[in-house]
């Protein structure tokens, strides 16, 4: 299905088709920016379970997936959300109560792991983490790794530089490739074939997309193929990597989408308050996730004034003067 064909579908259909119980998944974005939140909420609504999620620093999206019980195993570098949650709240609770199994890497290591998957090599080397507990302490035991053929049998491997001190490095850490069943990313612009353009920082979205069997692209603007070809240097994802394209304006909300809208400080603060309280959190989920049929219904519930407050300013790409306390 990765040919030059019309891949546009609804988000419900895309999630139904490409996400499944026990799937290996990654989501794009970084903390409070360009998380594919519309897709995250649809995954929660469809009650996909036992997901094995790979993330570097995907704060809000990871926390909401963890909080709603979709994730069994998480390989991650950073479970935080900037000033809005120094440690993601539901992530913290799930690790502490033993309901979420976690394997820790660094941000660079997770990026290299996606890159290795994208390149089709089994691992990539780095000098990061030598001498630390990232090497010594494993979240997924050797026994578990032996019984699950979707996991590499080692978390990582330290080896002497096989080129004997070449570039003055005595040792390297080999980190294993990630390949996912499906990766969800949210972009500013895409065409019906899946060619995609991100604006601002791309984080590791390109590597994440290319390490996936199937990529679902949600986009702010679905535009003509010719409009993307007019400025091809700005496009990052080629059509043949993509399986589904979904037009979802405000699809990263409540996280930011550069040039379109800022993060919503009110929503993120309210989310944290509810997430911290086990009695309040189910009601929050019922109201803002299960209680709405799709992303537009969530936006309607938040109201026009809330969205207008975070609309991006044309010069800077964010909402200037937004009250972010």
């Amino acid at each position: 299905m990765n040919s030059v064909s019309d891949k546009v579908m609804t988000l419900q259909d895309a999630v139904r088709k490409y996400a499944f119980d026990g799937c290996h998944m990654s989501i794009g974005g970084f903390t409070i920016n360009r998380n594919p939140m519309a897709a995250v909420y649809e995954i929660i609504r469809q009650r996909i379970r036992r997901i094995h999620l790979y993330a570097h620093s995907n704060g809000q999206g990871v926390d909401e997936l963890v909080g709603s019980g979709c994730i069994d195993r998480l390989e991650i570098a950073y479970g935080g959300n900037g000033r809005f949650a120094p440690t993601c709240v539901r992530f913290k609770k799930a690790v502490q109560n033993g309901s979420l199994m976690v394997e820790d890497y660094s941000n660079y290591q997770m990026t290299l792991r996606f890159m290795a998957g994208a390149m089709g090599v089994p691992f990539l080397p780095t000098r990061s983490s030598l001498g630390t507990d990232i090497i010594d302490k494993w979240g997924f035991s050797s026994e578990l790794r032996k019984t699950d053929n979707r996991l590499p049998n080692e978390k990582l491997i330290v080896m002497d530089n096989p080129f004997t001190n070449w570039t003055d490095a005595a040792k390297v850490v080999l980190v294993p490739a990630i390949t996912t069943d499906v990766t969800f990313i949210h972009v500013q612009k895409a065409d019906i074939y899946g060619t995609a353009r991100m604006e601002g920082l791309t984080f590791s979205d390109v590597e994440q997309a290319k390490s996936a069997r199937h990529v679902v692209v949600t986009c702010e603007e679905l535009i003509k193929n010719d409009a993307l070809r007019a400025n091809p240097d700005s496009n990052q994802i080629p059509h043949f990597c993509v399986s589904a394209v979904v037009h979802v304006p405000w699809g990263a909300y409540p996280t930011a989408c550069y040039h379109h809208y800022d993060y919503d400080p009110t929503y993120l603060n309210e989310y944290r308050k509810h997430a911290e309280n086990d009695d309040l959190y189910p009601a929050w989920l019922d109201r803002f996730v299960y209680g709405v049929s799709n992303h537009q219904a969530l936006l309607d519930l938040r109201g026009e004034a809330a969205l207008e407050a975070i609309r991006a300013d044309a010069r800077t790409g964010y909402a200037v003067g937004l009250d972010r306390r």
Binding site: Y78, G80, T87, S129, T132
Partner: peptide
């Protein structure tokens, strides 16, 4: 204990990379 911590924090993020390099 790492596998069942009393308190979990965010994790390395880029800190381990920075400290290494």
């Amino acid at each position: 204990d790492y596998t069942r911590p009393k308190t979990r924090f965010s994790g390395s993020g880029g800190a381990c990379d920075v400290g290494s390099f």
